[in-house]
Design a protein around this nucleic acid. Structure first.
Length: 635
RNA sequence: GCGUUCGUAGCUCAACGGAUAGAGCAACUGCCUUCUAAGCAGUAGGUUGCAGGUUCGAGUCCUGCCGAACGCGCCA
């Protein structure tokens, strides 16, 4: 049961049934039932009259009064009042509160899940969530180094979004795209070779002779693993006949390149997936290899299809639009990488993304036949769709946000989605800054001094990493404060919420003991109907009503978080719920009669215990969605 | 130059186009013979970067400035 949408449904159908208003369902799209502001007398509020006044050409206040009886007819509404511009404030009935609690207690961890087919959301078609498969791609870090704190943010956001969508009844597939092709992988193999040969070098260890090799210490471990498997098998000195030309080490392909590349790839992916598992993110083997897509001929097929439909053609590129300084730097870089750079005058295979909203056409295949990253990425996204997904979500880092536009344009060029309903939604994650005692820590990958995910997890733990990554909208930059992450106070939202959950469990344990004594020591577990059969009308304190309201609106939060792809809303709802709970708890310090455990009035105590149990259920659901432990006691 | 994102209390951030813009931290004042004080209650703190526009209503949408981050490749 979702109280807000139940009320909205009955309001909307009441409006539609009113012949005088002559309104259609689509007119009611923006009608909503919201939490009433704290300073207003009421639990919930609706903007219905304000939304519809113009459409029916009536004054909002007058229309609000006309709508009032519809709401009042609901058994969940005790009374409602019309105020200022035309809001209708709603007081929930005791029946509404009892029913919410009963539903939570009966459904347990299923509370807040999918709404059923009579879901009246106007924007959705009649198909239920079960009909669609959502493919959500995230992390997708290149396998050239271990994951760092920035990857962790995307990992957590993607994982929690997937949890949320699953909870809301969608079928969800998590995927990680592995860019295991191209120059960077050869560079990785060369870097490994350098570390590997270092292991056999006597005396002084030489600094890297080639610029651009990956300097991170993780490759030393990788090299050791290679040595213990293969010994000196790949050492060039071992067999003089096989030594590659040292003159141009970057362009030649030594005999060890392919096997070392493969070894490094396997090693890094194992490292990455085990770090992800430690973070609580499980892709269940859905690591999709770019190289495999190439080998399966999917890219060639895509290029052929695009040429046949006429959206990909040979053409020339306009000069880059970087500023003069940047352009100069790029020309230097380009001429160093390939001396025959005359790419502007040559014809490449271009995808005409300009026709679909991009500001330039993009290269799919260069004049000398190389397939670009863009082409294989399109092929990958098309592949996701042909494998059965009908909706795609990508979680991108800030540095890929420009890529989103191009990709969406490309998918439209492939005839997937439209301008108004794209098949691909992109959630872009801004950077994470790591703070220690208020000062930012450098995490440059080049210097090898960045704090990687593994050491972060060791230092602050999985729960803190996950929860704190969700305490901000994903498109806002995030400061991750190492001190706050391990603090055991209100500074640290993880502890605050977990503590609330533990408090619930604690009081329930105590109640268990008291009940046991009342039964003359007979071990008897508190049964479900101890809670569900309680007299909820005893819950008349203001804070108790606030708590019930938060519990009642929790499904609405899940719904909106899933719809807008904003998992941070769940976290803020949990913090809010924890706050009300702590507040309620502390009222017991003022007056004994306000305590939850209050044996003088057993009926009230039982009702309060049921409320605690309901709150604990909701906290546990929220924490579970976030992938964070819901501890029964704090250590 | 173009594109994307962000500018909200001293600090870090919330707020599906809704009402008197809310939390935490820091500051100040209270609450432990306690159902876990890892908590609670209160005081103080604001022209939501600036200027226009859209409408019953704008922190939120549009336009233009100002400021910040990231991207703009025959890299992946």
């Amino acid at each position: 049961m979702n109280l807000a949408s139940t009320l909205r449904d009955s309001l909307v159908s009441g409006i539609l049934a009113d012949g005088e208003l002559a309104l259609e369902r689509s007119d009611c799209a923006r009608v909503s039932i919201d939490l009433a502001p704290a300073n207003v007398d009421g639990d919930l509020a609706t903007n219905a009259a304000l939304m519809l006044a113009q459409r029916v050409r009536r004054a909002p206040l007058e229309l609000a009064r006309a709508l009032q009886p519809i709401l009042q007819a609901s058994p969940y509404v005790a009374s409602c009042t019309v105020v200022k511009p035309g809001f209708i404030n709603i007081h929930l009935s005791a029946q509404a509160r009892s029913e919410v609690l009963r539903v939570v207690l009966e459904q347990g961890c299923d509370y807040g899940g999918q709404r059923l087919a009579q879901d009246s959301s106007v924007n959705q078609d009649s198909s239920t969530n079960q009909d669609s498969l959502i493919n959500i791609e995230f992390v997708s870090a290149n396998p050239t180094g271990p994951l760092h704190i920035g990857h962790a943010r995307g990992a957590v956001i993607g994982d929690v979004l997937a949890n949320l969508l699953t909870k809301r009844g969608y079928r969800v597939l998590r995927e990680y795209y592995v860019n295991d092709r191209g120059e960077q992988m050869r560079l990785l193999a060369r870097s490994l070779y350098w570390r590997y040969s270092e292991l056999f070098a006597r005396g002084s260890k030489e600094p890297p002779t080639l610029a651009g090799l990956y300097p991170g210490a993780y490759l030393i471990e990788c090299a050791e693993a290679l040595k213990s498997r293969d010994g000196d098998k790949w050492l060039e000195e071992r067999d003089a006949r096989r030594v590659s030309a040292p003159a141009s080490p970057l362009t030649s392909s030594p005999f060890w390149l392919e096997p070392l590349l493969e070894f490094a790839r396997e090693y890094m992916m194992e490292r990455i997936s085990s770090d992800l598992l430690a973070l609580g993110v499980d892709f269940r083997g859905n690591f999709i290899s770019e190289q495999a897509l190439v080998e399966a001929g999917k890219i060639e097929k895509l290029l052929a299809d695009l040429q046949r439909t006429g959206v990909a053609k040979l053409g020339r590129l306009p000069p880059p639009k970087a500023t003069r300084g940047q352009l100069a730097a790029k020309e230097v870089a380009t001429s160093r990488a390939s001396p025959d750079a005359g790419y502007l005058s040559r014809e490449h295979l271009l995808l005409e993304t300009k026709r679909f909203g991009d500001n330039e056409n993009r290269v799919l295949q260069t004049a000398d036949g190389k397939i670009t990253y863009f082409a294989s990425d399109i092929a990958y996204h098309v592949d996701k769709l042909t494998r059965g997904a009908n909706h795609l979500i990508d979680i991108f880092g800030a540095d890929h946000s420009g890529h989103a536009q191009r990709l969406r344009a490309a998918l439209r060029a492939c005839n997937y989605g439209s301008e108004t309903s794209p098949v691909l939604e992109v959630v872009s994650c801004q950077i994470v800054r790591l703070l220690e005692s208020g000062k930012p820590l450098k995490m440059s990958k080049r210097g090898g001094s960045f704090l990687d995910l593994r050491s972060l997890l060791t230092r602050v733990g999985r729960d803190a990493v996950r929860f704190l990554m969700l305490t901000r909208k994903s498109d806002a930059p995030l400061d991750f404060d190492l001190d706050a992450a391990v603090a055991k106070s209100h500074d640290n939202p993880v502890f605050y919420v977990q503590y609330a959950h533990a408090r619930c469990c604690s009081v329930l344990r105590m109640a268990q003991k008291i009940e046991m004594e009342a039964q003359n020591g007979v071990e008897e577990k508190l049964e479900d109907n101890f809670f569900t059969q309680a007299d909820f009308d005893k819950l008349s304190q203001k804070t108790e009503r606030l708590l019930i309201r938060d519990i009642a609106l929790f499904p609405r939060t899940l719904e909106s978080a899933a719809r807008s792809l904003e998992p941070h809303r769940v976290v803020f709802a949990l913090i809010g719920l924890a706050s009300v709970l702590h507040s309620w708890w502390n009222e017991g310090n003022k007056a004994r009669s306000l305590r939850i455990i209050y044996p003088d009035d057993r009926a009230t105590m039982r009702a309060r215990l049921a409320l605690v149990r309901a709150a604990q259920i909701v906290l546990a659901i929220g924490l579970q969605l976030c992938g964070v432990d819901a501890p029964e006691e704090m250590a």
